[in-house]
């Protein structure tokens, strides 16, 4: 359906168009001149070389936390796939006969192509097993399959380093998300 758009009747000078063209040209050239003489007029960040300072609680790629014995904290409770609005988390649960935690994720896949980085999975996790504090946002791959981050990838994502965000939270605890723990305690 066509909607009537309220429009103003143009004056003669406006409909002659020539003056309006000149006005437009003055506007655009003023931008060019400003940009030549004032390098601060545009603040484009020249991305691969310069990087934007990150928000304190920036949500980057997911990592899975481990217990001191090296097993993942996750017990496959299915809270994150349940709460995930993008339905990007796939967990296959299994039983570990030797582990007091009984249940563990045999497979834990996150399809990063589907993920919308809302952070609900982190909020929902009762075991603090998944976090998005890695600040990794350059998530890319050559195939769709490689965009699915699996359990071992997410466990080893930080390669043993502490995420940068943790230092920020430690220095200024008021910025840390509720329930953020610094010591990775074993499950009782």
């Amino acid at each position: 359906m066509a909607l009537p758009v309220p429009s103003r009747k143009m004056t003669t000078i406006e409909s002659a168009y020539l003056l309006e063209v000149v006005k437009g040209l003055v506007l655009t050239i003023s931008h060019v001149i400003k940009n030549i003489f004032d390098p601060d007029h545009f603040r484009t960040i020249e991305y691969p070389d310069m990087k934007k300072p990150m928000a304190v609680r920036y949500r980057g790629a997911h990592r899975l936390l481990t217990r001191p014995d090296g097993k993942v904290k996750c017990v496959a409770c299915m809270c994150c796939p349940t709460v995930c609005p993008a339905k990007c988390i796939t967990i296959i649960a299994g039983e570990d006969p030797d582990d007091p935690a009984e249940k563990f994720p045999v497979e834990f896949d996150i399809d990063m192509l589907r993920c919308i980085y809302c952070g609900f999975c982190v909020e929902a996790c009762p075991k603090d097993a998944i976090r998005m504090d890695t600040r990794i946002y350059e998530i890319n791959a050559y195939t769709r399959q490689d965009m699915v981050h699996n359990k071992s990838y997410m466990v080893n994502l930080m390669e043993g380093k502490k995420p940068e965000a943790e230092d920020v939270y430690r220095a200024n605890p008021s910025t840390a998300p509720a329930g953020y723990t610094f010591d990775e305690k074993p499950i009782p």
Binding site: T28, I29, H31, V32, N35, I36, H41, F42, E46
Partner: peptide
């Protein structure tokens, strides 16, 4: 470069 400067961006570099 001209379009970039008109649109307040650095253009090809």
């Amino acid at each position: 470069k001209g379009s970039a400067y008109i649109q307040d961006r650095p253009g090809p570099n």
